[in-house]
Write a protein that binds this DNA or RNA. Structure first.
Lengths: 148, 148
DNA sequence: AAAAAACTTTACGTTTACGTAAACTTTATC
DNA sequence: GATAAAGTTTACGTAAACGTAAAGTTTTTT
């Protein structure tokens, strides 16, 4: 259970560091389903979880409509007929493949960053060696500028 | 070393399954730098590598301008003054943090998919148990429909 | 109760990453 | 040498994901 039962739009916006505009947009697109007290939106902890999922999805490169599809599919799955369940299992398998691809991409990127960093450090070491040599040269012939 | 020295636009497009429009757009945005024979673009294997990086970046949720910044930064880094080298090391560290975040996101997603899949399978098992019971009932009282 | 703060809808604007079409040139094929 | 194939530029169009502003309502604070 989450700490609280309901949330205002600005509470959620603040907590997840998004604008209220975004939250309203997500509702507009059917990703969140706040109830109303009068005109005012009241978000449940389910909405809160979904907002968290939306944002994680974004960080993982998912579009809002992809995320929405997952939400919808999951909701239908809960209603529980066999076709829906199988469809969900299928979708899950596909997503797993995507995640595998992403893990590969990340691993590759990390390797390349390792070599990039190594090269940087080598180049830096080179530069600093040069510097030290120059300083040494200065100390050994400090009058070299005056002599002309 | 890559197999070939130069590539036409459609060769690259085909190899990486993007449109020529996209490739031209990437050039337009300064991410690729083909030379020309007359009007025609000629891509080097460096361009090919960069195209690969662009696409991987996209899969990882990077925008084109983020990727371009990295490219530019790297090019300047190669020219090798100290400030650039330190800046690059800094940037690399930041990117590593991003990757860590993404790995966390993926791990979370995988866990949730595990539990989702488990629930699906349970629900399926339930449904199939019911089904079997119904069939059993039919066999034991096959005349139940006729008797009325 | 007056002012400030938070919320609402409506609607036009903006950026990113291309799609699509037109009109033209260059290169390859028959 | 005609024609098809591949390439080019120019330019308008589009979907996604909000930003921003206006104009009004509701709630809270003083």
């Amino acid at each position: 259970m989450d700490i609280k039962k309901t949330y205002s739009i600005s509470e959620l916006a603040k907590e997840f560091d998004v604008t209220t505009r975004s939250v309203r947009f997500y509702e507009d697109q059917g990703l969140l389903h706040p109830t109303r007290r009068g005109q005012t939106r009241i978000f449940s902890s389910k909405d809160r979880v979904r907002l968290k999922l939306i944002l994680r999805g974004k960080r993982m490169g998912f579009s809002l409509s992809e995320t929405k599809e997952l939400f919808d599919l999951w909701d239908e799955t809960l209603s529980g007929n066999e076709k829906q369940l199988l469809l969900m299992l299928n979708t899950l398998a596909n997503k797993r493949e995507q995640l595998e691809q992403q893990k590969n991409d990340i691993a590759q990127a990390e390797m390349e960053m390792d070599t990039a960093e190594a090269r940087c450090r080598e180049a830096l070491a080179e530069l600093q060696k040069k510097k030290r040599q120059q300083e040494k040269a200065k100390k050994e012939e400090p009058e070299s500028m005056e002599q002309k």
